[in-house]
Every structure is written in C-alpha cells, then in structure tokens.
Design a protein around this nucleic acid. Structure first.
Lengths: 198, 198, 198, 198
DNA sequence: AATGAATGAGGTTTCATTCAT
DNA sequence: GATGAATGAAACCTCATTCAT
C-alpha cells in the first residue's frame, strides 16, 4: 500500500537519494573536480537533466553532503555533552567514550567523512570547530586539576583532532585496527605520554 | 660565456626556474586543478608553448615540485640521524631537535610543504614514509627502555606526523607560535601526556 | 451547472485563460526566448504537462496572443471606417479620431501590443498591414485634394505607423503624455509640418 | 614585407575580423539568441575554442558590434555639427544633409544597424540619444523662429527618429528608394506637413 | 483535468596541449 | 629559445517537451 509498485523510476525521492549516495561515493573517491555529473547520472540510470531536477548544481549536491556530515556530527556531539560525574578515575573512560564515538561515526560514515572532514575546503572550518569543542572539554578538565596547568590546551586539542583524522585514514578505514583499539591507544598516549614511569 | 646574445634576455634556465617558483605559489594557493598553465606563463611573462619547452605536462611540473620537497626533506632527515649518545636525560632534547628541524623546514618551505605534504595525492605516501622514519627512531628509544613497552609505536609515530601537519597549518603558518614554541609544546605532550602527576 | 465536482477547483478554461494572461505578461516583459514555460506554469499554479493540455507548444501560445492582438486591432479598425462626411474642415478631427483610437487601444492593451506590435517577428507584417490601411485612407484624402499631390503617400503612412509605435513606447506607456495629447501633437506635426507660417 | 604570405590561419587579426564580420551577419539575421557560436566558427573555418581566443563570450562579441555601431554613429554625428550659416533658406537643405548622412550610414552599415539600432536591447538607449541629439538641433532652429513655437519638439524629434528607423527597414534596405529619395520625402513631410496649401 | 518524473537536443565555455614558424 | 594561432575533448547546464498514471 502507499507508493509501492511504481513503474520504472516513478519515485523521485528514490532517484534523488540514489544520486546523493552515488555522489557521496564519487566525491569521496575522486574529489570534487574529478567527479562528473555524467558519471553520477549514468550510475543512477538517468539522464543529465534528471540531475538538475533534484539539485541546482554540482556545488549544491556537494554542499548537501557536507551539510549532512555536519548535521550528523553535531547530533553526535550534542548527545555526548553534559557529563556530571567528574571523578578523576572516570576521566580516561569518559574521554575514551567521547573519542570512541567519533571514531565509530567516522567508520560508519566513511564517504561523508572523506568528503567533509578530510578533503573539502570546509574541512578546515569543521576541524576548527571540533578542536574548539575538544578544547573546551579539556579546559574544564584542566580546571579540575586533572591536567597539567603549564600546557597550551589548544595545542592539545589540535593534536587530538589531527590524530583522529590521521588514524581514521591509516588504521580505521584500512581495517588495521578497530575503533576501540584506536581509541584506547590514542587516549593512552595523549593522557600519559610515551615515557615510561616506574 | 653562458647565456649571451640571446633575444629578449632569454635565459632558458631562468625561465624554467621562474615558472617553477610561480607554479609552486599557484599550486600551493589554488591546488592542482585550479592552477592553470595559462596563469603560470602569464605571470612568468612567457607564452604557453614555452612552458612545454621545459616541462612535458602540468603533471610533470607538479611532480617536480613534489620531488623537490622530498629531496629536501630527505636531505634534512639524513642529516639528523646517527645519534649516538643515547642517555635518558638527553632524550627530550634530541627529540625536540628532530621535530624542531622539521618544523623549521616546513616554515621555510611553505609552498612546497603545502603542495607535497598537505594537499597532494602524494602526501599520503610522504607522510607514510615520514611516519616510518619516526617509528624507527621511536622503536630504538623504546628498545632502550625509555618508552613504555605496551604502546603501539606505529600509532605514536602517526600521532607525531599528524600533529606536525596540523600545527604547521594552524599555528606555524599563521604565526601564532614560533617553531620553537610549537616544538616544545608538542614534545611535552607527546612524551609526558596531559595528566598531571605529583 | 458549469464546472462542478472537479478536483482542486479545476476549471480548464480558467487555467487556460490564466496561462494566456501570464504568458502575455511574461512575453511582453522578457521576449519570446527569455520566457520559460516553467515560469508560466509556476505562476499559474499548475504543472508543465498541464500547459500542453491547452497549448500544443510555446510557439502556439505566443501565436495565440498575436492573433488576439490582430483580431482586436482589426475589430477596432473595422469600426472606424465608413466616414462619409468628408469636408475639409473635419479632416484633422477625423484623423485625430482614427489615431486616437489606436493610441487608446495600445494604452489599454500594453502587453499584447508589446508582444505583437513592437517585438515580435510578426510585427513587421502587422505594421505593414496597418500602413496599408492608413495609406488607403490617406490616398482617399489626397484624391479629394486635401493633401499635396507631390507626396509619396506610402511614405506618409509609414511615418504615421512608426510614429505611433515610438510614441507609444516613449510617451504613452511611460505616462509622459496622455493618448489625447500624443494624438493631437502627432496630427499637428504630420498635417502641418514643423515650419512656421505667417 | 610585413606579415604577408603566412600559411593557413597564421594571422590572428584576420580570424578575429572574419568572426566579427560573420557574427554581424548572423546576429543581424537571426538575433542574439538564435545566433550560435558554433555557426560563427564553422563559417570562419575554425573550432569553437578559437572563438574564445578573441572574444571572452558571446555577449562580448555582440557588445563589440554594438560599440562599433555607436562609435561610427557618433563619429558621423560629431562631424555634422556646428553649422553656422543659419539662414532660413538653407534650413531644409541642412536638415536634409543631416538626415541624409544618417540614411546613407544606415544603408552602408546594414548589419550593424540592424543589430544595434533595430533589434538590440540597447536600441532603446541609442534611439533615445539620437532623439536627444535631434531635439537639440530642432530646439535651436525653433529658437531662431523657423519652427512653430506651439510644438513639443521632443515629439518632433521622436517622429524623426522613428521615421528613420522604419523607412530604413521598409524602403532603404529593400531598395525601394535610394537614401536621397527617402531623405527628401521625409524632410518634405516633416517640415511642411501633408496638407496642401494654396 | 492534471501530475510526478524524465528526457533529447543543444548551448556556452574551459583548459591542457600542439603545430608551424 | 620562443611564439602566434589553433585544437580535442569534455564539462556544466537549460529548456521545451513527453510518458505513464
């Protein structure tokens, strides 16, 4: 019942979504400039004008994917706020949870992440925002006396962001490590450093 | 002797170098695809065919800049090897020296670094090599017992590489910090971690 | 009675008329090529196929507007024939009446006039017909001895037609003059010329 | 000597001029929108990109033709200024000279005139300027007492402009009359009117 | 009477690259 | 060593029009 059993391509929303999905893949694999509308529509089984039925331009569909990423990421981060129980012992755990969620998100949204977080011109801004987000969290923790007070927390935040980006590309997406493993190792190093203590 | 009697001050090598330099700037600022041969030759004061006198293709001149970067980087890294005196106390110092040299190099070769290390498709490979380099050093240090043995050193190396990349972009090139400052802070965090110890 | 029980207030004739009206406006404002079917249907609140329910093509609706203009103009001119009382004294008056009627018509049918009389490819033919019409009238008057016999009446007719066109655009539609004023001034000049006589 | 005897198409200026000329013809015959770059280049014996070697866009080549027309027209009108000897007897002669020059110009520059004076969107402005020009002349003559003082000279000027336009199209370009004949008849009617005087 | 979805055909423009001199 | 002129290939986009329902 409802809109089922339509004949060939009679469902616009389907076409639209299909194109979005294909576009995500193409943009992720080839970047904006090497991605051709003609490829997208060919793979979607429609003609070029059909593309412009749903998207005003190549830029527009690209931006829509970026927005999708941003929306999803904000949704994710919005969820993971406001943790009250700030005992020292739970600190690594909590941090692990936060990072882990993001790694998992990156793992599950590889195309979008590649497009918006790794390769796009917007990546800069997004990373900046994420860094600020993380910085704020770390500052709270520093104010609680958990972190050394002589550190530039902004730099620490940048280290976290760049680490997430890189490990996602090198270890997560290559399946060299699971998100949990990566999370744990990262937190280990960032919190405790490399040096051995007796 | 040398370039004499040429028309219009024509010294081939000069034109070539000029184009390389301009290309570096353009590629760094606009990326490969938004950089047009026509712009390069216009700025160099020559015509389009002149370009093809010195470079077989757009890809070629780009690659040449990448190679330049790789060559210089290898030169740098080759120099900084062979550290004998491996006492524990000098460890942070030695690491700082190594990282600092690279930051300084990135600072002094902004265009090339942008092209080869930040934006290009080759960046992956280069970062990989650098990571391996660093990994090897860290492994030695680990084997000396300076670092914890439960860590995945490869991951540590990746963190170092990605941190260098990001801080170069966000702090070094924006003049928010000097290379020395960045180096010190980075080493501090990576070696000792964020957590305060009494 | 009439259109009852239709969906969504659907009265075919109404849609048709609405589209015609909107089309008139669009064609008048933007010309044939810059007028898009999509704009017409959007403004009419229907879909593209609905357009083709009533008009076989873009050309057809355009032609229908032209025909409308021609029909109305002929109606007008048909009315104003049959002038019997051809005394010399009433001549200017009669001519004023004739021209005035046309100016008024142009004023009241701005869109149609723009489309059919000013801008279209058919304008040529229509003007030609109008010129012939006027020529015939003038010839009668010439034969009565009211007009100089050394003049090329066709040329006089063309002057009248072109004057009407231009003044309509420059003075009538811009509200710089009323149709009466324009009529009077035009007749004055055409009949008596510019030169002062004592 | 000089640039002679070049091989096939080695003369850019020639290509440029050829395209301009062909474009003039095409624009005149088909209007802006029905004129295709592909037609121009095909007729010029070059490929599409060659067009963009010389003109930045379709609009640009069109505008260049308009500018050409304006320039030539201004040159013409500039020449025919500053008439001192304003005796009454020479008045028709002088006016005839002025109009005649323009008719001749229109005859000799049919394509350009069609493009810039008859069909283009700029035609409005150009006609307006020409009308103003003529108005100024007529006002002087009126102030000398040659013309009736109860006339709206602007309207007279508009009549002249529109008459020139129309007769050019209907009589001059169709070779029904020579420029001299048209000029004479026009001046006759405009100056003395249609009405017979004894 | 009307629609959601799709298309055929064509348009302008861009850019790396080469030919002949 | 250098150039003026030209091109092949392809990209994005538009619009009138139609099919199936």
């Amino acid at each position: 019942m409802g809109a089922r059993g339509r004949k060939k391509g009679a469902d616009g929303e389907k076409s639209r979504k299909l194109m979005l999905q294909i576009a995500a893949e193409e943009f992720a694999k080839n970047g904006f400039h090497h991605t051709k509308i003609s490829t997208i529509v060919k793979r979607a089984g429609v003609t070029q004008p059909a593309f412009y039925l749903y998207f005003p331009s190549k830029e527009a569909i690209f931006q829509e994917l970026i927005d999708q990423f941003i929306y999803k990421l904000e949704e994710l981060i919005g969820d993971s706020r406001l943790e009250s129980d700030l005992t020292f012992d739970s600190l690594p755990e909590r941090i692990e949870e936060g990072l882990g969620a993001i790694f998992t998100f990156f793992k599950q949204n590889e195309y979008l992440t590649k497009i918006a977080f790794i390769n796009s011109d917007y990546a800069c801004k997004i990373k900046e925002q994420l860094a600020t987000q993380i910085e704020e969290n770390l500052l709270v923790e520093q104010s609680y006396g958990y972190f050394r007070s002589d550190l530039d927390i902004r730099i620490a935040a940048e280290i976290v962001v760049s680490t997430m980006e890189r490990l996602t590309v090198t270890h997560l997406w290559t399946n060299q490590k699971t998100d949990e493993e990566i999370t744990e190792e990262t937190v280990q190093i960032i919190l405790n450093g490399l040096i051995k203590r007796e």
